[in-house]
């Protein structure tokens, strides 16, 4: 879409960055938000249908593919799908073995879920930015942002899941008392410094999921904005910038998925360690 004037451009960008929101409007009741302002007014009691839909679709796609490969898995010569799946599994297994120092058979599947899910969600970004908003617009759906990881809710949601796992494993391995002791008596092992330690440790604990979420969200959102800006160029000039940026994003997509996964394993590993 060529920018006729500034208003159109701003509208175009805002439109592409707005999620399809379903929620309870203070005055209008339960409905799909028809404008950004309406979505904002809905507050917390709203849900991004596109984010949820696409992310669940990607998660199901991942589980379905891997489940299928698992059912067909033979110990003989593997086929194409099984080969690819096994490559990922082996990669995750190695990553877990080198990063995670405890003994917990659930860490590798958790890492696999994170990695494949984020990778698939990020990959949606390679699709041209106009296709799905246009398609759904024709079908009468006003907003459609298909990349879930450009929605801070999605990344923060996953990070919250990881945070719960960190707390759960910390309590499981060290006991609730042990975990509380770790929070209050490190880094300074003196009862007078307990409040100071608590502040330090709790901030450190909470920063983990927030940094995870914001890193992924920031990278993906910035990339998306650039794609949208490139799409504002005249149609014959788009590919000049779009192609290199998309190729570069193949790297970013997998790298961000990898970083999220690795850091999650590192955090979970730390949760398993006794001090």
């Amino acid at each position: 879409m060529a920018a006729g004037n500034e208003i159109t451009a701003i509208y175009y960008i805002q439109h592409h960055l707005q999620n399809l929101t379903f929620g309870r409007h203070p005055e209008l009741g339960w409905k799909f938000a028809s404008t950004s302002t309406e979505a904002q007014e809905m507050g917390f009691m709203a849900i991004h249908v596109d984010t949820m839909g696409w992310s669940i679709a990607m998660g199901v796609l991942f589980l379905w593919l891997f489940r299928k490969a698992g059912q067909m898995a033979t110990t003989g010569v593997p086929g194409g799908l099984q080969n690819a799946v096994e490559m990922v599994i082996e990669f995750i297994e190695n990553l877990t073995r080198s990063t995670f120092h405890g003994k917990n058979p659930h860490i590798a599947p958790i890492a696999l879920t994170l990695f494949m899910w984020i990778l698939l969600m990020n990959t949606l970004k390679i699709l041209p930015v106009d296709y799905f908003p246009e398609l759904f617009g024709r079908l009468g759906v006003e907003y459609m942002k298909i990349v879930p990881t450009t929605d801070v809710n999605a990344t923060l949601g996953m990070a919250l899941g990881v945070f719960c796992l960190i707390v759960y494993y910390s309590c499981k391995v060290k006991g609730v008392g042990g975990f509380a002791k770790e929070l209050s008596l490190t880094p300074f092992n003196h009862w007078l410094l307990i409040p100071f330690n608590l502040v330090l440790e709790i901030v450190g604990l909470i920063v983990k999921p927030i940094s995870l979420a914001l890193r992924l969200f920031g990278n993906m959102f910035a990339g998306e904005v650039i794609f949208i800006l490139i799409a504002l160029l005249p149609f014959w000039a788009i590919w000049v910038l779009d192609v290199p940026w998309a190729i570069f994003h193949i790297l970013v997509v997998s790298l961000q998925a990898f970083i999220f996964t690795t850091l999650s394993i590192v955090y979970l590993s730390a949760a398993h360690e006794h001090h």
């Binding site: 917390f44 984010t51 698992g70 599994i89 659930h106 590798a108 809710n153 923060l156």
Partner: peptide, 30 residues
């Protein structure tokens, strides 16, 4: 960027996916 229920939804989805992966996906392939 507004934080809303999507956050909870994503966390629940994540939990279900992880559970499914641990239970049905990882063991046969591994």
């Amino acid at each position: 960027m507004n934080i809303n229920m999507t956050l909870i939804g994503q966390t629940i989805a994540f939990a279900i996916f992880v559970w499914f992966c641990i239970k049905y996906v990882w063991p046969p392939i591994s």
